[in-house]
Write a protein that binds this DNA or RNA. Structure first.
Ligand SMILES: [Mn+2]
Ligand SMILES: [Mn+2]
Ligand SMILES: [Zn+2]
Ligand SMILES: [Zn+2]
Lengths: 148, 148
DNA sequence: TTGTACATGCATATTATTTTCAAATAAAAT
DNA sequence: ATTTTATTTGAAAATAATATGCATGTACAA
């Protein structure tokens, strides 16, 4: 069993993708990709990308951010996640698989990996005859700072 | 460490609850509770309850089913779940804790428990200083029959 | 019975997402 | 550089799920 280390998707990859598939490089896509791929954290709402984008170009619309994020997902450059209710969050594709710890108070998100749990999940699926494609594991609670 | 076996909530409990809290016993609540607590499976959409309810009383409204299900959740008689997108599913509260295997093809839901995974999840949370309140674990894939 | 607070049904509001379409524009063709 | 064209955009509207306001109806206590 070998693991091909999945390449982390970057803005440069996206630029290349656009050209190679005959899509157009636009000011809007450039700004959105810059924020999404090189921004300070890993879990963006469409609204947050929009806010940041508008600081660079006040005319950018929600629809364009929406469509660009959907394109990222479509072409495998982003993962779309739903934690609880509320809006979807998007994160860059290609980093190591991980799950999430979520503070219900301050909404802080901590990523973690646990190989043992992953193996047990695969076992459970197999035991029920499932061909597992993916899973979702979220641990909810209060983070250290919110406990004070 | 002892476990007080949580009592499975029943329609009878609900009837008692209504009386004890001064809420009214109505034809609508009776029908909805009957379907929810004594129906043939464990994961109901509001729309499904509504359909069944209307066979017994054609005038029952979506709003009433909605509010009744919300009441069940509010008073701890139901759990509300969101698998992927789409509508919420509701299941009776008080059965043993479990997680879910979901067939992405036929939407079949299989429940499972895995004590080892639960312990490891608690460990992960603790290691990050989290006071974990609950978690969500869903394994997605194709079930036996859908693999043929 | 009758009074009244609670519950219901209908309509409408919210929230997040998705699509439509005329106008704008990137990139190819002159 | 100018024209052509197909793609992309922004604004608005459509959709989908959830949630609420309000006039009317009803359970149930008096
Ligand atoms: Mn993440
Ligand atoms: Mn279940
Ligand atoms: Zn916190
Ligand atoms: Zn299936």
């Amino acid at each position: 069993m070998k693991l091909i280390p999945t390449q982390i998707k970057t803005k440069k990859h996206f630029d290349t993708f656009l050209v190679s598939k005959g899509f157009k490089k636009t000011r809007q896509r450039d700004i959105i990709a810059e924020i999404f791929f090189n921004g300070p954290h890993h879990h963006y709402r469409i609204e947050e990308i929009l806010e940041h984008a508008r600081k660079l170009d006040a005319s950018i619309s929600y629809a364009t951010v929406y469509r660009t994020m959907m394109m990222f997902v479509e072409i495998g450059f982003a993962q779309q996640r739903q934690f609880g209710k509320g809006q979807s969050l998007f994160e860059v594709q290609g980093r190591h698989h991980h799950d999430h710890l979520i503070c219900t108070q301050c909404k802080k998100i901590i990523e973690f990996e646990n190989e043992t749990i992953e193996k047990l999940q695969a076992q459970v699926a197999k035991r029920h005859g499932f061909k597992m494609t993916h899973h979702k594991m979220e641990l909810y609670g209060t983070c250290v700072s919110c406990q004070k």
